[in-house]
Design a protein around this nucleic acid. Structure first.
Lengths: 341, 341
DNA sequence: ATATTTTATAATAACGTTTTTACAAAATGT
DNA sequence: ACATTTTGTAAAAACGTTATTATAAAATAT
């Protein structure tokens, strides 16, 4: 069932059917009525492929993420898909497993020719890769300077700053930090936020309390064990993402210690275990779903404005939220109590 | 940069370039070499849209799921995407929020005209909807009889059968079941598996121990409270999905009871909390990722065989796996101990 | 030496739309 | 009453490919 069939059956030309369907003027109301009737009767739907070819717009956007089982990325995908849907677009999903080569191949093979725009949680560190992308692109979470692309990120520095300050306010000074890799802005900024808060309160950062590593649970588990089994264990640990935090919780449990008593713990990223654990764990919650919706709206705006490369790339910084729960011991209070004893 | 440009610059006809690129025979090796050289030099990549139009194949498949934040569906998506990728397809993702109307609209508007095939965790109960889908379709998880579509499902009945038998073997007879809605095969089959196991061991199913409801956490929480606060609380609870199980765990905790001592608990679906909770919870684990990969392979096979409607729809039943952990009290043993006292 | 087959390439049609151009007929202006 | 504008429709071109058909040259067969 093509537009030709409709035209033939309705007894008009192909162009007239097209005009009617696209709401163009200069078509007799009576003709319009008849065409619409036949369209409905024949259940005609235009072929997207043909439309895309002539309009050079596919109404498809791609969302490229490392992994979908991580709820963080799943939320980004969800936000993207919902905005896309509401604005008449569909969403192509690509999982990269953080494999740079795979991401590049994808880009060359598919993205360039198929989609109107790309939402990208990239695995590449160098800005050249991003510059080579011709389609409108929004970088999410990880932002690369000089990439020439707009970005939607969260306030990493503010997040660890708040967590650190929360610990300090509760009297902690021996604070350890377990971080992921520092190749991207996220790891770097989270570390800076911690250092900044410490320096603002004139507290020294002990080198042995700084544990860089990777973003996985095993790192959280091992680093926590090392910290707690050392000569001078810290009084509090800052876990820089959800997986590290889970690893830390498990390590603490395996060492038969109590969170919030023997050791205080705070984490970046909220997750089920942080909520469910007793005591529950104080965390920074970041608006992951909103990152998706923001990015999708920005992307589609760009697509529809035909601005493939923004003149002045902008980075939208979404604020994060401290969720105070039960995992931080108040050392001031306990000192106070012991001093009045 | 189109095939025309390449042809012009290489000094051959458009058709020759096309022949070279598609590996057709009857082209002079020397000509082939020259064309390939220019293609590389000009960095030419064929326009997918044009190819799709003439070949009537888009190399896009759609995966339609109710929700992406649920790890179960995320795993299906992941399995689908990885197979699709490896076989040269890309994956369109559609989230329905279990909204029947939305799903139908999607289907009419996009799926029919854009994709080669569909992997569908459907929200529709009636088979007519599925029959009306012209594209190759694989139903995942929820299977509708007479839909005319192939399906990939798991052994729901075997799952609850195993869970129930595990409880019975440990001496339980007062077993309660908290189930979701019975509109689809999943809820029905899970209930049947329970009943079957009970009847095989000649144990009566008490009506007050049967709690149908919905698949959400709140149902698990409320039903568990009701069961445990009744006159004759059961000795064991079977939670029919991950969310109900989480609700049950929370309710038990809020009632200050101990899992595996005061009340035994088993669940359908593995999840973080079941693993993390102390004591950990015995569950049925289902191969969600494999459902995605199986479905994608079956779908692409169909697409490439040009069989839009399988003559004899088949349902692939993947087996489930009992993960025995610490949440079931052995009543035989305790009886034995008390009788020898 | 001529007829036939094989090989290499080009020209053209087709996929299903939208957009542009063309052309009447009707309406309006003088 | 005639020139001009407006309105409604149709025909044709374009989007970028692949597939089919046509044609010429080379190779082979008789």
């Amino acid at each position: 069932m093509t537009i030709k069939d409709v035209a033939r059956i309705a007894g008009v030309s192909v162009s007239t059917v097209s005009r009617v369907l696209n709401g163009k003027d200069r078509v007799n109301p009576e003709t319009r009525r008849q065409v619409l009737e036949k369209v409905k009767e024949l259940n005609y739907v235009p072929n997207n492929l043909a439309v895309s070819m002539v309009k050079k717009k596919t109404k498809i956007i791609a969302v490229v993420v490392p992994e979908i089982l991580n709820p963080f990325y799943a939320a980004v995908v969800k936000g993207t898909e919902e905005i896309a849907k509401s604005r008449g677009y569909v969403t192509l999903i690509l999982l990269t497993n953080d494999n740079e080569k795979e991401e590049k191949d994808y880009y060359d093979g598919i993205l360039n020719k198929y989609v109107d725009g790309i939402i990208l949680v990239g695995s590449h560190k160098n800005s050249e890769f991003y510059q080579s992308i011709e389609k409108p692109t929004i970088l999410v979470d990880r932002y690369i300077e000089n990439s020439g692309k707009d970005g939607v990120v969260i306030d990493n520095m503010g997040g660890t700053y708040q967590l650190t300050e929360h610990l300090i306010e509760n009297g902690h000074t021996d604070i350890a930090i377990i971080n992921g890799i520092m190749d991207f802005n996220d790891g770097r900024e989270r570390f800076w936020g911690f250092k900044q808060a410490m320096s603002m309160h004139n507290i020294d950062v002990h080198e042995k309390y700084v544990k860089p590593g990777n973003w996985f649970e095993e790192n959280g588990y091992q680093s926590t064990k090392e910290l707690l089994q050392s000569d001078h264990p810290p009084s509090a640990i800052l876990a820089c993402n959800n997986l590290i935090c889970i690893g830390a919780i498990k390590a603490i449990r395996d060492l038969d210690l109590k969170i919030g008593e023997d050791i205080s713990l705070v984490g970046f990223d909220d997750h089920d275990l942080a909520q469910f654990n007793r005591p529950s764990v104080t965390v920074i919650d970041r608006p992951t779903y909103e990152m998706g919706t923001n990015a999708a709206d920005m992307l589609i705006d760009q697509v529809e404005a035909n601005t493939s490369k923004p003149l002045n790339p902008k980075k939208v910084n979404l604020s994060v939220n401290l969720k105070v729960r039960e995992s931080v011991k108040n050392l001031n209070q306990s000192k106070h109590i012991s001093s009045t004893k």
